[in-house]
Design a protein around this nucleic acid. Structure first.
Lengths: 116, 116
DNA sequence: CCAATATTTGGCGATTTGGCCAAATAACGC
DNA sequence: GCGTTATTTGGCCAAATCGCCAAATATTGG
């Protein structure tokens, strides 16, 4: 894993940016088109400075880009595919806790061996 | 957003579980089939107790399930679609920092209005 | 039962995150 | 320039996260 550590580090950085209820909700809103910061502020029950910081996190991760137009700043998604995350995440939520034994698997008799 | 807060909370929980380099790497390994804890331990340069806790996080999020066979415990993905996350995440990484103005957008002249 | 292997759990310090407040910055209209 | 609106930034504190160590638990084989 060591030689790929940086890659997974950067990937994790992106997921970390998404891993917050408010930010996730904002990304969902942005999936339908750009949104002004002030619109977010009105819809969410947190301080506007908090919203701004959340958007900064998304921007820093490369998920969104911003553009100032007049007094307002608009944000939009940089990569549309993030929308697809919801589908899979919800699948995890819906998936029943399937217990059960792997049919093709036998009990290990030897000691642990390395991962390829 | 308030009425959907719980949904986004649970979704974020799942993404948070993925949002760590080591855990992300482990999920990637699990995409190719079940893996024993001891195999992870040998491949990653952290304490085995740390590995165990990372796996517990993934399990708690519903992403993986475990099964003990003899002395060893094997983990496997519960939902295959998480593999698709990598494709999109990497797209975010590769996407150039496209600056530029939204063509169809004009400067706002009114004050901020609410989000639908 | 005892020793060895495999894994989980509890606890501890160090770092990061999240949210609020206050202050700074930006753009606009008068 | 001044006041207003919109947004970002810095500081602060509470809470969560990460990784190590030590100890507990589980399983197997003498």
């Amino acid at each position: 894993m060591q030689e790929q550590a940086e890659l997974y580090q950067r990937r994790a950085e992106i997921l970390k940016a998404l891993a917050h209820p408010t930010r996730l909700w904002m990304v969902d809103q942005l999936a339908q088109g750009e949104v002004c910061v002030c619109q977010f502020v009105e819809a969410v029950g947190v301080d506007f400075s908090t919203i701004s910081k959340h958007l900064a996190v998304l921007k820093r991760a490369g998920l969104v880009e911003d553009e100032r137009r007049g007094k307002q700043v608009f944000y939009r998604l940089r990569v549309p595919c993030v929308t697809g995350f919801f589908r899979c995440v919800d699948q995890v939520l819906d998936h029943p806790a399937a217990a059960g034994t792997c049919a093709a698997c036998t009990t290990a008799k030897e000691d642990c061996h390395e991962l390829a």
